[in-house]
Amino acid sequence: MEELKKKVKQALEEGKIHGFLGLKADEGDISPFFMTKDNIAELEKLTAPDGRYSLGKILSRIAAQNPGKAIGVMVRGCDERAIIELTKASQLGTASTVQFGVACTPQTAEKCNCPQPYPSTIDFGEKAKSVNHGELLTKLEQMSVEDRLAYWMAQFDKCIKCYGCRNICPVCYCQECTLEDKNLVPGGIVPPATPVFHFIKAMHMADRCIDCGLCEATCPSNIPLRTIYRHMRKVMQELFDYVPGRAADDKSPLGTLEEGGRLIH
């Protein structure tokens, strides 16, 4: 960690980055923080904990305030994938990023059920083994359509409409969210219109979800949201060989179909 702090400090002092976004530990509390060289002492608190936050999403807000500047950011595998998607969707504006890669520990990888618990370049930590528990998805896929729908309807009935899954999602960036469209999702009703509410989100995730699992982690009702989005990812990969978060120059098939449904690229 000391090495990483040194690298970030050097980049700040040399003016390679205007500021740095990472995670800090403050008396045991883990939170995101943004610093510039004016408050360099903050860097001492930098940590790579078990807890995760949507750093990509926070980065897009910082980027909007700092057009044209280079922003340093601590990235895990999931953060890197999110930043790839945000870049594709022009959500970082004219700001650029300098990424400091952190590989997750095997414990974090297991807790997050993460198939890719490391970024492409690692500045801290060692590559942990890929984790991929997909028992629920396999079980659901073997069910009849009726049983599967019944399963999801029972799950969606638990929803308290906190919008946490959308708020925490690193790749939910729309200014106007369809989930707040009163014509599709009537207001003042809990659980929200089922299954429309959750399936709108699932459709919007089809070419965006980077499988970070934060939606499921933040859901107060423990709805296995990630399983829906993982299914969407699987469909996208099987049909179009498209994996969100894989590469910045991949183009979403949902935006690039030509007449007859053939892919252009």
């Binding site: 939170s31 995101p32 995760r52 936050y53 910082i62 305030q65 308290i160 946490g164 933040t218 107060p220």
Partner: peptide, 25 residues
């Protein structure tokens, strides 16, 4: 979340023993 002295957003505390990263609306 505070940006330039203005409160701009709320985040759950992911490692809080009670809320465990969840918030209500």
């Amino acid at each position: 979340e505070v940006m330039d002295g203005k409160v701009t957003g709320t985040l759950p505390s992911m490692n809080h023993p009670i809320s465990e990263g969840s918030l209500c609306i």
